[in-house]
């Protein structure tokens, strides 16, 4: 194995991890606001299928992207209403969202399975930068959606840790009552961030169907929504660490394709099934690593994660 193998692997990792990255950042916003949404997989699937369909029927992939944002947001709105306003269990509501998204996307996508020629988002090697050895192919020779992902992580980080609304976001997930008495509209902000998280999940799905693996197949996310959920924990709710996790996951998710050309795998093609387990085992491994780390450093979930906020209840 030479250097070029790793360059290809890292470049592919950034490419393949982009969909997961959007979903992970979206979930970070929702969870920072105190709402757990385990329905990412469903929102991604709906984003993927509607984006692909919209791009196919209108001929414009950007419209597809827009539709995915809206669809993801609407699905998250359902979750927000059920968990924030009606205060139903967040896990069960999220599961319902996933099952709904999986079923609905299969129904909507049935006529799209045969479609192979929907317009894709354009690839765009950045002139000059893409020619730099090693760094060029890794960072600057990608589809436009990948650049958006590369920018999204630092912007999200800056927003959460360095801006006033970001500070309020952290507060409403940590101690909503404290934010409430200072006049921060907890319920409204939770709605907004859950919806925003859903939009990013939809975007992640669209990134898959319009650029990364450009077509629609039933269940094409293959658990990426759940992986995003794990990456949020690995990332300690920090978008920059989320990017690291998502790109690593992308590289490992891509590994089976690279391995299949090795002599060992050429001789035993069934070994590829083990290679395909790697991304999922990798996430479990990440969880184990971060569990130990978080225990030591006392970095936990937002304190109010999973709890509905109620003001008018009689205290002691």
């Amino acid at each position: 194995m030479d250097l070029s193998f790793f360059v290809v692997l890292l470049a592919a990792g950034i490419r393949y991890g982009t969909g997961t990255l959007f979903a992970t950042i979206g979930e970070i916003f929702a969870e920072r606001a105190g709402v757990l949404n385990v329905g990412i997989e469903g929102m991604m699937l709906m984003g993927a299928v509607t984006a692909y369909g919209a791009a196919y029927y209108t001929g414009n992939p950007w419209l597809g992207l827009l539709v995915a944002l809206i669809v993801g947001g609407v699905m998250a709105l359902l979750h927000a209403f059920v968990t924030i306003t009606l205060r139903a269990d967040q896990v069960v509501s999220g599961l319902a969202l996933t099952l709904l998204g999986a079923g609905l996307s299969a129904v909507i996508g049935a006529p799209l399975v045969e479609v192979r020629d929907a317009p894709q988002l354009p690839a765009f090697p950045i002139p000059g930068l893409a020619q730099i050895p090693i760094l060029g192919p890794i960072f600057f020779d990608h589809n436009v959606i990948v650049y958006i992902g590369l920018l999204a992580a630092p912007i999200a980080w800056w927003y959460i840790y360095r801006t006033r609304p970001g500070m309020e976001l952290r507060a409403i997930g940590e101690y909503p009552a404290a934010a409430d008495v200072l006049g921060i509209a907890v319920i409204r902000q939770r709605y907004l961030y859950v919806i925003f998280g859903g939009m990013l999940a939809g975007l992640g799905g669209a990134a898959l169907s319009l650029a990364i693996t450009p077509l629609w197949v039933e269940g094409m996310t293959a658990g990426q929504g759940w992986i995003a959920l794990g990456l949020v924990i690995f990332a300690s709710w920090n978008p920059l660490r989320a990017a690291l996790g998502a790109y690593l996951f992308g590289a490992i998710g891509r590994l089976p394709l690279d391995l299949q050309n090795l002599p060992l795998f050429l001789a035993n093609p069934q070994l590829g099934y083990f290679a395909r387990m790697l991304p999922y085992l990798f996430v479990i491994l990440l969880m184990i690593i971060s569990a130990r780390g978080n225990m030591r450093r006392r970095i936990g979930a937002p304190a109010a994660l999973g709890q509905p906020y109620v003001r008018e209840e009689r205290g002691a």
């Binding site: 360095r162 006033r164 500070m167 507060a171 101690y175 404290a178 008495v181 200072l182 006049g183 921060i184």
Partner: peptide, 30 residues
């Protein structure tokens, strides 16, 4: 203004952040 019996402070944030939480005329970036 009220000082509640159970302090309304966000444990993971700094003193200054807690003081400025929800202040509208502060700048967008901290």
């Amino acid at each position: 203004g009220m000082v509640h019996q159970h302090f309304m402070l966000v444990q993971s944030q700094s003193v200054a952040e807690n003081v400025f939480l929800g202040v509208r005329n502060a700048s967008f970036s901290l």
